[in-house]
Every structure is written in C-alpha cells, then in structure tokens.
C-alpha cells in the first residue's frame, strides 16, 4: 500500500505550480476505489455467485443493485469535490522546528452541502462545508531549517458518501513562509548596554518620571510603595516610574556566543524576542546590516527577517 502511494505520488508530481486559487474540475480530480470499495466489489461478486448457484432472480437483482450503486457512487464522490474553490491565503512565519501554519480557504459556491472534506499537509483536517460557504482551514507544515520554507503540495480528498471511492486533488500552490532561527533556550543576559546606569536584570526600570500605580509585586522597593492608597485600605500599590533613561540597546551578532553561526543566530533571536516582549527600543546589527534602534512589531519583523535570511 505504501509503495503504491509513493508510486502515485510520483505519478502525479507536477513541475509547474498552481495559481493562487484553483477551482476543482474534472481535470483536477482523480478517483480510485478504496480498499473498502474493492472489498465491496468482492461482495458483489460473492452475491452473484450465490444467485447463480441458487438460480435466484431476486438475489441477482440485489447483486445488480449493489453493483449499480457501486458504479454510481463514482459520480457522487466526484460530485462532492467538483466545483470547490481552494485558495491559499497566507503562510505564517515560524521559528525553526515549529510548524508553519498555512491558512487555506475552501469555498463552496454551489448550493450543495459538502461533507467529509479532508485537507492534508502535515496534519489532516476534516470539515463539512455548507452550501455557499467559505471556510478557513489551517494546516501545518513542519520546518527543519532557517530561511524560506516551501510547503509540500496540499491534498484535498473526499470519500463521501459510502467510502467506496476516494476522490482527491493534489494542489501545488506556491506556499512559502519565512522560518526564523530557533530562539535559544539559554537565558543569557542582554549584551552590555551603552548607557552608564543600565543594570542587568533591571533594565526596564528608570527613576525619572512618575508613570502611574500598579499592584505591588514582591521585590519592589519599600520606597516605591504608595502609602496613601495603603492607608485608604485599597491594598498595596507601587509607584511606577518610566523614563527614557536607557540609552540604546544594541543587539549585535558579534556580541553573541556559541559554537557556530546557527547557535549565535539563535541567541540573537532570543534577545530580539525578549527585547520586544519588554517593549524596549533596540538596534540591531548583523554582518553587513545595521538597523537603527526602534521598537514595535514592524521593526521586530524586520530584524527577524534579516535573521532568517542571513
């Protein structure tokens, strides 16, 4: 069975890519009996033998009925795929060894309800699609290395109604996503900061402007406690100060450590994530590329892209 599958895969391999959106028609849909279908054919043969041995016309009639149903199921299975429109929306970026999530839209423009549609990439999803509905399906594609990741062809299959036949279509979309390096699990501190007051582990704290009150957390300095609210019986609050005391944080490839470039990139990636999570402003230096300090998701993406394509 496995060899057959491999052979079929080879047979249907294509050397050109599909457009972004594909309407399934007779040119795109293949259909073959399943194992169950072959067993059903055997059943029909057995019933024919019984009818012949007993020369029983009603048994003949039943065998012919089953044979006809078997034959007509081909049309119905085909019909359950025909006319569907499948399109790739986008593939979400991921870190190495995470799965790239691919958003696929399955559109049923007809008034026929579709059942049991199976989409397969690395994982398999089965959905029902009511008439004139469009559905978003997310599939995963595993990643192994950094850089552009091209997804395998997507298979859309259906065995409705009886599971005797399987209709399927292989879709060769160009689905690519950026794969960022895997963030290092080692919790290394940020590189030395250019500013003089920066202390490791307490970077977010400056002491210039009162920013607001927040809940007391263990480890907050006694000096920061807002005693007035405590006196009012509202519990412990700490005063929060924010300031632009931090001079720039530079995340620099040359300051990373590790055995090889991959490890160093992974360390850099980790820093990027940490810095973004803490809402810091940071600059980014990679060999031959310098990004001025900034923050926000756009900047973060830019840095990650640089890492991925390094």
């Amino acid at each position: 069975m496995k060899q057959l599958k491999l052979f079929l895969k080879k047979l249907f391999k294509r050397h050109y890519l599909d457009k972004k959106s594909v309407t399934l028609n007779h040119k795109r849909i293949y259909i073959l009996p399943t194992q169950r279908g072959l067993n059903f054919a055997l059943l029909v043969a057995l019933l024919l033998v019984i009818s012949f041995v007993y020369n029983n016309n009603l048994a003949y009639l039943l065998s012919f009925l089953l044979a006809s149903v078997f034959f007509i199921t081909i049309l119905h299975t085909f019909k359950s795929l025909a006319g569907l429109i499948i399109s790739v929306s986008k593939a979400h970026s991921a870190y190495v060894s995470e799965d790239v999530v691919v958003d696929i839209y399955l559109d049923n423009p007809s008034i026929l309800e579709r059942f049991n549609l199976t989409l397969n990439l690395n994982n398999t999803k089965t959905i029902d699609l009511p008439a004139t509905q469009k559905r978003l399906v997310t599939l995963n594609s595993p990643t192994l290395k950094r850089g552009w990741h091209y997804c395998e062809p997507i298979t859309l299959a259906c065995q409705y109604p009886f599971g005797l036949f399987k209709a399927w279509s292989v879709l060769h979309f160009e689905v690519k996503a950026l794969v960022y390096p895997k963030p290092s699990t080692e919790n290394n501190p940020f590189p030395e900061l250019a500013g003089e007051q920066a202390q490791q582990g307490n970077i977010t704290k400056g002491h210039s402007d009162f920013y607001g009150l927040r809940d007391y957390q263990e480890g907050d300095s006694i000096r920061d406690i807002h005693w007035k609210s405590m006196a009012k019986g509202q519990g412990l609050h700490s005063k929060d100060y924010r300031g632009d005391l931090l001079t720039e944080l530079w995340l620099d490839y040359s300051q990373t450590f590790g055995y090889d470039s991959e490890q160093r990139l992974s360390q850099l990636c980790r820093w990027l994530i940490d810095a973004d999570n803490s809402g810091l402003q940071y600059g980014f230096i990679l060999v031959g590329l310098t990004l001025q300090p900034s923050s926000g998701s756009c900047h973060f993406k830019k840095c990650l892209t640089a890492l991925a394509l390094f």
């Binding site: 009925l65 006809s68 149903v69 034959f71 199921t73 059942f115 049991n116 065995q159 109604p161 599971g163």
Partner: peptide, 26 residues
Amino acid sequence: INSQQSKPVVAIKKSATILAQALPMT
C-alpha cells in the same frame, strides 16, 4: 460510519437518492 454524519435524515436522503438513481441501471 464513513463521514461521521451527525444528521441521519441527510444520510437517509442521500442513500435513498443513490438507490433510486441506481434502479434503471439495475
């Protein structure tokens, strides 16, 4: 069994339709 179809009425309709369509060939 095949489709985990939760609405038996839909399934009954479908199988009846297919049987009816199979009759001429039978």
